[in-house]
Simulated scan of single mutants.
Amino acid sequence: MHTDPAVPIQVALGCPDDAEPWFKANYALLNRPELGDEYTRLLNAWVTLEQKHDFVMGKGSKNRVTVPKPDVLQSWIASGRTRSRKQPVVVNIEVFAAQVVTWWGALQPEWRQLDDAGLPMATRRVRGDWGQPLDVHGQNGMLSAVACLGWWGTALGSPEARASDLRWCRLIRDVAWVCEEMAQRL
């Protein structure tokens, strides 16, 4: 539900016709306009980023992050992502949210400061390269963050519940901003 007249309503870009099959399958699962304008902005930013990479399936980062991926994400990857055609279900929102926040914070380059909650500071200024492991495209890249936020938002349910979960709101904006910034530099 769009409530702020100062923020333009986001319209989904749609899945580009020239997208690779991996992208089309994931876009179909993650295109959730009911999750609101901020999520649509995130989806659009992800579309633009992958489009600028010509939807090439990037390889995973060789730089290992000391924080594991969220459990639900690991299960989804192990089951072949979209091959199962089923969306993962987040059973315990608090555990999943904590895992996503910690994992996203661990992916950040050292020039990004984290606040006491483990979220990147709201300062929106790029001060260096994004670097590995964050700057990975294809199904091994930002898809994971977009998917986690889609599942989290779905688990929250109502627009009111999503609006009141400040971690989800902040991460939606942050991941969208990262995708937009990385796309601008291509």
Results as ranks from 00 to 15, higher is better:
Val11Lys: 06
Val11Gly: 00
Val11Ile: 07
Val11Cys: 00
Ala12Tyr: 11
Ala12Phe: 14
Ala12Lys: 09
Ala12Pro: 14
Ala12Thr: 12
Leu13Asp: 08
Leu13Ile: 02
Leu13Tyr: 11
Leu13Cys: 06
Gly14Thr: 05
Gly14Cys: 11
Gly14Gln: 10
Gly14Asp: 07
Gly14Glu: 09
Cys15Gln: 12
Cys15Arg: 10
Cys15Pro: 07
Cys15Ser: 14
Cys15Ile: 10
Cys15His: 07
Pro16Cys: 05
Pro16Met: 08
Pro16Ile: 09
Asp17Glu: 10
Asp17Val: 07
Asp17Ser: 06
Asp17Met: 01
Asp17Arg: 02
Asp18Met: 01
Asp18Glu: 10
Asp18Ile: 00
Asp18Val: 02
Asp18Tyr: 03
Asp18Asn: 11
Asp18Ala: 09
Asp18Phe: 03
Asp18Trp: 00
Asp18Gln: 04
Ala19Gln: 06
Ala19Val: 03
Ala19Pro: 09
Ala19Lys: 05
Ala19Phe: 01
Glu20Ile: 02
Glu20Ser: 13
Glu20His: 08
Glu20Gly: 03
Glu20Arg: 06
Glu20Thr: 09
Glu20Leu: 08
Glu20Tyr: 02
Pro21Asn: 01
Pro21Tyr: 02
Pro21Arg: 02
Pro21Leu: 10
Pro21Gly: 01
Pro21Glu: 04
Pro21Met: 04
Trp22Phe: 05
Trp22Tyr: 02
Trp22Met: 00
Trp22Arg: 00
Trp22Glu: 00
Trp22Thr: 00
Trp22Val: 00
Phe23Glu: 14
Phe23Pro: 05
Phe23Tyr: 15
Phe23Ser: 09
Phe23Val: 08
Phe23His: 12
Phe23Asn: 10
Phe23Gly: 11
Lys24Leu: 01
Ala25Ser: 14
Ala25Asn: 15
Asn26Met: 14
Asn26Pro: 00
Asn26Ser: 12
Asn26Gly: 13
Asn26Trp: 14
Asn26Gln: 15
Tyr27Asp: 11
Tyr27Ala: 09
Tyr27Leu: 10
Tyr27Ser: 08
Ala28Cys: 02
Ala28Pro: 01
Ala28Phe: 12
Ala28Leu: 05
Ala28Gln: 14
Ala28Gly: 06
Ala28Glu: 12
Ala28Val: 02
Leu29Ser: 06
Leu30Ala: 11
Leu30Met: 09
Leu30Glu: 07
Leu30Asn: 13
Asn31Ile: 00
Asn31Gly: 00
Asn31Phe: 01
Asn31Trp: 00
Asn31Leu: 03
Asn31Gln: 10
Arg32Cys: 10
Arg32His: 07
Arg32Thr: 08
Arg32Lys: 12
Arg32Gly: 02
Arg32Ser: 12
Pro33Ala: 13
Pro33Tyr: 12
Pro33Arg: 07
Glu34Thr: 05
Glu34Met: 10
Glu34His: 08
Glu34Lys: 11
Glu34Gly: 14
Leu35Arg: 07
Leu35Ser: 05
Leu35Glu: 06
Leu35Trp: 11
Leu35Gly: 04
Leu35Thr: 02
Leu35Pro: 04
Leu35Ile: 05
Gly36Thr: 06
Gly36Asp: 04
Gly36Ile: 04
Gly36Arg: 06
Gly36His: 03
Gly36Cys: 05
Gly36Ala: 08
Gly36Gln: 06
Gly36Phe: 03
Asp37His: 10
Asp37Pro: 04
Asp37Gly: 14
Glu38Pro: 01
Glu38Ser: 15
Glu38Trp: 11
Glu38Asp: 15
Glu38Lys: 15
Tyr39Asp: 13
Tyr39Lys: 10
Tyr39Gly: 13
Tyr39Asn: 13
Tyr39His: 14
Thr40Asp: 09
Thr40Trp: 04
Thr40His: 02
Thr40Pro: 07
Thr40Asn: 04
